[in-house]
Design a protein around this nucleic acid. Structure first.
Length: 282
DNA sequence: CCTGCTACCTGATGGC
DNA sequence: TGCCATCAGGTAGCAG
């Protein structure tokens, strides 16, 4: 389920628990979680100290002495902390530390845990585009990327090779905040609209992250998940309800096999803003 | 290169 | 209650 803000909040909270600790043993309970590598590869993490914990897109990365553990939660994955010696829960992979165990849990078995000697060995990581909360991500950069694609805006925002970390929820939300129609084509977005999308992305991610940090993740509670995120959502999950901005009825449509929520009234097709290129251009 | 579609998994939910 | 269809905050792999 997690997108960038959720993974970032997990990173910050987990850092305090596992940084500097040595991984004494690795137990692969469900081999599917480490496919296609296999348990042997993941067990290379055993004996190594956790030097740091980073995030790239939706990947959580544990920096070890001689390599990296890359965790991807896909739809339903999460991490849990077992303070006792015996993690009783249905974890797929368990990393035993000195005073507890870190469990990678995913009942749906779509999430993955991988081990790499170098980050570049991870194909998924290599493909990732810009970090939307980094200084590198500017309105100008976004505009340049938009120009290169004819895909619908919602699909463009979900493309991890352009912007890393936006998922189904925050891409819907960003377009609602920017007032742009999800069917609009990326390459028709005007500079002024690109600035709005850029601002919307940054703001929705910041707001979500703040929400995810307070209260912080509770890895000891197997039922735990981020609460109160609805408070920052403008459209997601609001099919049939009035738009919080203009009162029109929110619609749910399918794009690239995923649900998109949007307001048909106040989310306009791109390109229609002030003067069009045809009117002012050569 | 770009784009779109499907497979991958399991559990929750709602209609009949 | 049972059964079936649909949906779920994601990505890799493949075909065109």
């Amino acid at each position: 389920m997690p997108e960038l803000p959720e993974v970032e909040a997990v990173r910050r909270a987990l850092r305090r628990i596992v940084s500097g600790k040595r991984i004494r043993r690795v137990r692969v309970v469900h081999a599917i979680a480490v496919r296609p590598q296999g348990a042997r590869e993941i067990r290379r993490a055993a004996g190594q100290r956790i030097r740091g914990i980073e995030r790239r897109g939706k990947y959580l990365l544990l920096k070890l002495e001689k390599g990296w553990l890359a965790l991807h939660f896909r739809l339903d994955g999460q991490v849990l902390w077992f303070a006792g010696e015996q993690p009783k829960s249905h974890a797929c992979v368990i990393f035993e530390l000195a005073r507890g165990s870190l469990g990678f849990v995913d009942p749906r078995h779509l999430g993955r845990v991988h081990y790499y000697r170098r980050q570049e060995e991870c194909a998924g990581l290599r493909r990732l585009g810009m970090e939307p909360l980094s200084a590198e991500f500017t309105a100008e950069q976004l505009q340049a990327m938009l120009r290169q694609s004819r895909r619908p805006l919602k699909v463009f925002l979900m493309d991890q090779t352009r912007i890393a970390g936006l998922g189904n929820i925050y891409s819907s939300e960003a377009l609602w905040r920017a007032g742009l129609n999800p069917w609009g084509h990326a390459d028709e977005v005007k500079p002024e609209e690109a600035r709005r999308v850029h601002k919307a992305i940054v703001e929705v991610l910041r707001a979500a992250l703040e929400c995810c940090l307070d209260p912080p993740p509770d890895f000891r509670n197997p039922q735990w998940w981020f609460q109160g995120l609805e408070a920052i959502l403008g459209v997601y999950g609001r099919e049939g309800k009035p738009c919080r901005r203009c009162g029109a009825i929110i619609q749910r449509i399918t794009q690239a096999g995923r649900s998109t929520y949007f307001c048909p009234k106040c989310q306009r097709q791109p390109g229609g803003s002030t003067q069009s290129a045809k009117e002012t251009g050569p």
